[in-house]
Structure formats: C-alpha cells, structure tokens
Design a protein around this nucleic acid. Structure first.
Lengths: 193, 193, 193, 193
DNA sequence: GATGAATGAGTCTTCATTCAT
DNA sequence: TATGAATGAAGACTCATTCAT
C-alpha cells in the first residue's frame, strides 16, 4: 500500500489557513504561507482544496458548537435576569477564545459578492435551540412576550457586532462595555425583577 | 498630485469605484473596471489616487451625515418611547437608500489586516451628538440611567449588524423584523410608559 | 528497472498510453490518465518507463509488420497494374484498422524538436522488402524504370499523407478518393496495359 | 493621446513565436522565450493573444499565398509535362524558404485532438485555383482525365509529405529525390509526350 | 492633463516524479 | 512489487502601475 492518507491533514491545512487569513487577510496570504504553516508542500493543499477560494469557502459553516454547548445551558439555569448575564458573558468568553474563527467570518463578508454569503445551518440550528429556552421563560413570565427566534437574532447581532468592534476592529477592550451590553440585553428582554 | 485639478472627476472616480466594489468586491474589481465605469482612462485614476488601496481608503470616512441630519432630530421630538421608534425607522430608511455605502464599509472590514480599520471620526462625532440627546432623556426620567455613549454604540451595533444581515447578506426583508428590533431597543432603553 | 517483471503489464501500459495520446494528444494526457486506463497506479508506470517521454518514445518503432505481411504479397500477385490496386487497398484497410497507431505516429511529429524524429528501422526494412518486388516488375517491363527505394517512399508518403488528411484530420471519408489515388499510383508507376 | 498601438506588434510576436516553436517545439517554448525574442514583455503578448494556444492557433491559416502567386502561373506556361516540372520545383523552393511555416504546420498536427485541425480556407482556395489549370490541360489532352480537385490534393499530399520527411524529419536532402518525385508526378498526370 | 499600450513582478496552479508504506 | 499521497519546480497568466505620446 501507498503512504496512507492522513485524515487530519485537511483540518491541519484549514487551521493553518485560518491563522494566515486572520493574520494577514485573504489577499495577502499566499498559498505558500499556508503550506509552510501547515508543514506540507503547496501541492498537497491542492489535494484537499480545488482553489484558494475553496480553502476560504471551507470555513463557511464555521462552528458555533461551543456556544451551543456551553452558553445555552446557562440560559436555563436560575432566574432569567441572571441567566442572561451569565450566558452572555460565557458567549463573549468563547468568542474571545475563538478569535481567529470570528476574524475569519468577518473577513469572509468582504470577500466577494455579498450574495454568496449564507448564514450557516449551524447558526440557524443554534438560534432554534436557544428559542426554546426563551419560549420557556416567556411562559414563566420572566421574559417579555416576543418572537423568540427573531429576538435572538437581534441579541446575537448585538453581541457579535460589538465583539467585532472591540476585539477585531480595535476599538478597545470589550470588558469596558461588557456590563453595559448585558444590562442592555437584560432590559430589552427581561421583565425587571 | 493627488486631489489635482478637477474635483468632480475625483468624485466621479470614487462613485464608480464604490459601485464596482459593492458589486464585485475589492479583489474582483479591476482598476480598468473603475476606469470604464467612470468614463476615464486607467491612467487618469492615478492622477487622483496613488494606488488601488488608496481608492478604497478614500471611503474610510464614509459619511453618516444623513443619519446625523435626519435621524437625530427625531430622537428629540415627542415622547422618548415614540421617538426611538421614529428615529430608528428613519435610520434604517437612510441605510436602505445608501446601500452601496454600507456594503462598502463592510467590504472594507474584510479588506486587509484588521488593525488597519479604525472607526471613522465621523461615527464618533455622530455618537457624541446622539449622546446629548440621550443624556437629556435620562434627565427627564424617560430613559433608564446609562452611559449614553456606550449605550448608543450598542444600539448602533444592533441596527447596523441587523441591517447587514438582512439587506446585505440576503437573510430577507428587514421589514419583517423592524418592529421587533424597535421594540427591543425601546425596552432596552426606555422606562416603559 | 525498465522492462521489469511482468511484460504484459508493460504492454498494457503502452496500450493505455496509445489510446490516451491518440485521444487527447501528448500534452493533454496526464500520467494519471494512462494509469487509470491501464488499471494500475501512477507509480507503477515508473517501474516500466523512466519518464513520460519514454512512454511516448516506446512507440517510435511502431510496427508496420501487418503491412509487410499482408500488403506486400499482393504486390507480387497477378499483373502489376492490378497488383498495385489490391496492395494499396489492403494497405489503407490496415491503416484504417490501426488508426490509433498512425494517430500516434503523427502526434509524435509535433512532439518536440524535429531533429529527434527518425524514421524507424522497421519502415526502412519495409521499403527494402517492397523494393525487391518493384525491381522484379521493372525487369518484366510492367513498371517503368525507376529507383525502387525512392519511388516507394513517394508512394508511401502519398498514401500516408492522404490517409492522415482523411482519417485523422477529418477531411472526409477516404473511400471518396481511394480510386483516384490508386489510379494516380498506377499511372505514376505502371506502364499502361 | 497615449502611446499608439504598434500595428506590426501582433505579427512581430507571431514571427517570434513561429521561430521559437520551430526551434524547440510547442511544449518547450516558454511565453517568456517568445516575449524576449519579440523584444516585448510577456504581458504584451497577452494584449494580442488570449492564451499560448491562441498564439499557436493563429498560424492555422498559415498562408500558401506564395505558392499560389509563384507556382501556379508556371503550371500554365509551356507544355504540361515541363510545366509540372517547373511548378513543382518552384513549390519545393518556396517551401524550403518558408521552412519554419511548414515546421509549424506539422507541429500543430500533433498539438491536440486531431478533430481540431481543419485545412485552412487558403488551402482549399489554392486547390481550386490550381484545379482550373488542370482542367484546361485535360481539355487540351495533355493531362489524363481525372477529377482535378482530388488529384491536386494527392499531388499536394505527395509533395508536402515528402518535403516534411526530408527537410523537417531529417531523412536527407530533398534534392536527392526531387527528380524522382517530379517524374512520378509527371507520369501520374501527364499523357507522355 | 489625459490616455491606454506596454510593462514585468508576483502567484496560483499543475503535474511529472518520488518514496514511505 | 505495487501503491498513490506527497512533493515542489516550473510556467502560464494577471493586473496594478508606468510613461511615451
């Protein structure tokens, strides 16, 4: 048999690409940069991705899995007003840790004609899972009546854009306005205690 | 060299560039595309802009002047709860009309290393002007106590990101969630009537 | 290294290569195409041939054996005028059946610097064998006096080039001009009956 | 006005390309080789030709104009038997002088899938012009009855292929068999004097 | 000043070849 | 021995920029 295909190679290349794109942007990243960083030859990248664009495109459904797994449960625990606080903080924490992923996602917005960009299924799934949590809180009267799906989009937009302003676009340390943002969300959603 | 002679030609080139960038993205736009659209020769662009990046950079201070002129006054008129509604709707309307401008602003995010991007002075000026309006509402007790500047950033982020999702990224017609967003903002800021 | 082990594999590879080259030309044929067609792995080709050029080079002595075996005897049978007809028709028939072989031979002409191409020994041998046949016909007075070797080259050139025009280059069905060609050769060589 | 387009540049590039292709073959010729030989930059070639293949393709209707202008008239002068001699010698002389052109034409045969190759209009036109000459000779009884168009194809094939064997493929000096070829053609066509 | 033909450095991509398994 | 994943040199092509007119 031949040298066996290393199943981790595709993701190793993606990880290298993510780092390069996040560091220098799509344009300034050379296929060779990715290859060097991944510790493979240029040609190898092309066994796994048809073009440079395809490498970037592979990040389209960048996973929000961690937010789903770690932030969501917090939304169900304890009083809603407090749960919003905890869940939001955890979300920001995860985003901070996955900085490159979010840099990349934003990078991709500017990447081509906008029509190419579609919110990934994962995000929609995430919103739907969160929706159930909100629905329950509405039922208990802790959350003001609203369309949970739409409202969660608004919250997600708010968090994401603020995160981007601060951590990606260098407006400062997000910690400075974290409290204000949480308070904003709490008042927008929760019936004050 | 730059800012030479005919200032109307400079802005004609910028307008052509904005349209091209918005249509195809920065990467896919050729200097020649801009030239053709502007009805000039490629060489001419170089009398007004040093490089292609410089053409894009000229949009950095993309004007929020209309929002300042048209949305802000509405925030001061009538009851705060209602004023928020009117002002937000007007803001969205302006953004809809200036679609290319916002496309471009988002395009620039993905443009290069993120550190290059700085929120424009105009935006800061805008937030400061709005802040005074909020401060007055806090004084009258119509707005819950908060740091006006930070809070307005949050509102701006929420509106902008939601606008982008819907109008630029094609998630649907923003009209569908306009009411929900306004309600969200009202509850986040205003002491309910 | 070369001519290793299984000789049937070597010829299987050559057959696959011939088909590929004839179909797509030398340039457009990938080593992988040949491998797939031969049902072996790319690496295997390299156990039998040092390089891609070597695969092509192996066709240099493309066999004219069939023409020798099947067309030549016809040239000796019966009256020369008629023999020319039968022998030429048989030659064309064989060429038709060995289309790929001739495609390949022509392909090789365009292959590299022309100096690389040498008429194969087999062809020379063929011409020499035919020469004897012609010499005999000159002796009987059926063929006009000429240098048999040179004259046969001319006949071969005529047949080959015409065959190529019609069957390879798609000028039409060679049957349309087969009679004219035979008549042409008959008049050029034979003393009319 | 800008630097004016040099109308001779396209043909200068083609001439350089012809020389390179004839010298090293299509494969071994680099776009840069052509550029250097033509005394232009690589990019300039691409203003006149879309691809490397296109440069080669531009030779498809390589002109037989000289043969038409210089060999044809000889076919009408004097007795047919002699005219065939003179016309053929002139044709070979022209081909000798236009060696690169013919090298290229043969090179192109091996270039791609054969179906792409079409005899150029010029060639067909040439055959048709020659046909009239032959028709006249048939009328006078100097040429044996035949389909002039088809027969001329045969003659052209014979000359071309023999020329290629000798001058391009290095079988020797065509002068060695020139007499034999002319005699061959004379007997094939002309009623002996 | 305006033009647009020419430039050529820079990069993505290909694919013959190698070699660990 | 056969395999085919990995390699990386090599080259076609692009396109921002220049500059002769």
């Amino acid at each position: 048999m031949a040298r066996t295909a290393d199943p981790s190679m595709r993701s190793a290349i993606m990880q290298a690409a993510r780092a390069c794109f996040a560091e220098k942007g799509y344009n300034a990243t050379r296929m060779n940069d990715i290859a060097v960083r991944a510790g493979v030859a240029v040609g190898t990248i092309y066994r796994y991705f048809k073009t440079k664009e395809a490498v970037c495109g592979a990040f389209a459904d960048v996973s929000n899995e961690r937010i789903l797994q770690e932030s969501l449960p917090l939304l169900d625990e304890g009083r809603f007003f407090v749960a919003l606080d905890r869940s939001t903080r955890m979300t920001l924490q995860i985003m901070r840790e996955e900085l490159d992923t979010y840099k990349l996602a934003y990078l991709m917005i500017g990447f081509g004609p906008y029509t190419d960009f579609k919110p990934s299924d994962v995000s929609v799934a995430m919103l739907e899972r969160f929706s159930q949590s909100i629905r329950a809180r509405i039922a208990t009267g802790e959350c003001r009546p609203c369309d949970p799906f739409v409202t969660l989009q608004l919250v997600a937009n708010l968090i994401e854009r603020t995160f981007v302003s601060y951590l990606l676009l260098g407006a400062g340390d997000i910690g400075e306005i974290e409290d204000a943002m949480i308070s904003f969300i709490q008042h927008a959603l929760a019936v004050p205690p």
